[in-house]
Computed example of a mutant assay.
Amino acid sequence: MRNPNRIPKTLSLLKTIWEHQPDVLFNQLISSQQHVYLKEQNRKGDFFIWKMRIGLAFQRK
Score class of each variant (00 low, 15 high):
T16Y: 02
P22Y: 05
Q21H: 09
S32T: 06
Q33G: 00
L38W: 09
N27L: 13
F58R: 08
S32A: 06
K15L: 05
L56E: 12
V36R: 09
L56S: 09
P4A: 09
H20V: 01
K51F: 07
M1W: 11
L38R: 09
R43P: 00
P22W: 03
M1T: 12
I7R: 06
M52A: 07
I17D: 02
R60G: 03
R60A: 10
L11F: 12
I30W: 07
L56P: 00
G55D: 10
K9M: 12
V24D: 02
F48W: 07
I49Q: 13
K44F: 08
N42D: 13
T16V: 06
I49W: 09
L56Y: 11
Q34V: 14
F48T: 03
Q59Y: 04
R60K: 10
V36H: 04
F26D: 07
L25A: 15
W18V: 05
W50E: 14
N27W: 08
Q21F: 03
R43H: 07
H35C: 06
G45M: 01
K39S: 07
S31A: 15
L13P: 00
T16L: 05
T16W: 01
K51E: 13
S12H: 12
L13N: 09
K39L: 07
N5W: 04
N3V: 02
I54V: 12
D23A: 14
R53L: 15
R53Y: 07
P8S: 04
W18G: 04
R2S: 08
F47Q: 13
K44W: 06
I17Y: 11
R6S: 10
T16R: 12
K9Q: 15
I30M: 15
K61E: 03
S32V: 00
W50D: 14
V36K: 08
Q34T: 13
S12C: 08
I30L: 15
K44T: 10
L13A: 04
Q59A: 09
K15R: 11
N5E: 15
W18D: 01
S12W: 08
K9I: 15
K61H: 05
I30C: 14
S31C: 05
S12N: 14
P8C: 05
S32M: 04
D23P: 00
V36Q: 09
P8M: 04
E19P: 00
